[in-house]
Amino acid sequence: MPLLDTVRTIETPEGVSIRLRLAGPVPRALAWALDFFIRLFIWMIALTFLSPFGKFGLGLFAIGVFLLEWFYPVLFEVWKRGATPGKKILNLAVLQDDGVPVGWSASVVRNLLRAVDILPFLYAFGLCSMFLNRDFKRLGDIVAKTVVVHLDKPKLPEKLPPGRALPPPVWLSSPEQQLVVAFAARSLRLTPDRVQELAQILCPAIARSSRQPVDADSLLGYARHIAGER
């Protein structure tokens, strides 16, 4: 049975697999609220400047509200790599199902269907749709074939504990190298007992392969070597 995760893997025609980390209702609701407050702020400024012009000003304001409501998400999604300011703050982005950036037609469709998702009160339909859909899509996403994904990159390893760098005595693939570096970076925040415990999982295997004694400190040394220290 595959392990439960929120990642969808997409195979491109070039044979590269892309991992999309889907975003669910909670961060998306917050991103929407941030966007809403940004638009509210713009409305208030516009109203302050337009209200002295009487009915003409209010008419302009109404046109402005219409344009802002319908095109704010579309323009940001197409021109700003799938992210409105609210999504940008939360590191979310809209992509097409196959992982390519969202285009005009998909963006227009998914945002026009906000008119359905928003029913009957503040995106209650959209919320129910996200709960029922395995890819956390609201109705607009289903029709436009788009997904909202997390973009935040795993933080680069912080500083490694200082010490001597050692070349690893066995061949390690790139993810395995990253794992050793992650272990070294994390060792500063784990309890010393836990660091030893974790090292004891790997050390005997490396010692057997390389026929030399290996302990937690040597793992840290490999990490420094992998990270480029000499």
């Binding site: 049975m1 392990l3 439960l4 995760d5 929120t6 990642v7 980390r21 889907l22 975003a23 669910g24 209702p25 909670v26 961060p27 939360l90 996200m130 709960f131 395995r134 956390f136 997390h150 935040d152 795993p154 992650a182």
Partner: peptide, 23 residues
């Protein structure tokens, strides 16, 4: 564990909660 263990942001962990409910 039948759940993929990896370093996640808080938001991603929250989303995993929904996937768990769905499953």
């Amino acid at each position: 564990l039948a759940v993929e263990i990896r370093a996640r942001s808080h938001w991603e962990a929250t989303d995993l909660g929904l996937a768990l409910v769905q499953a």
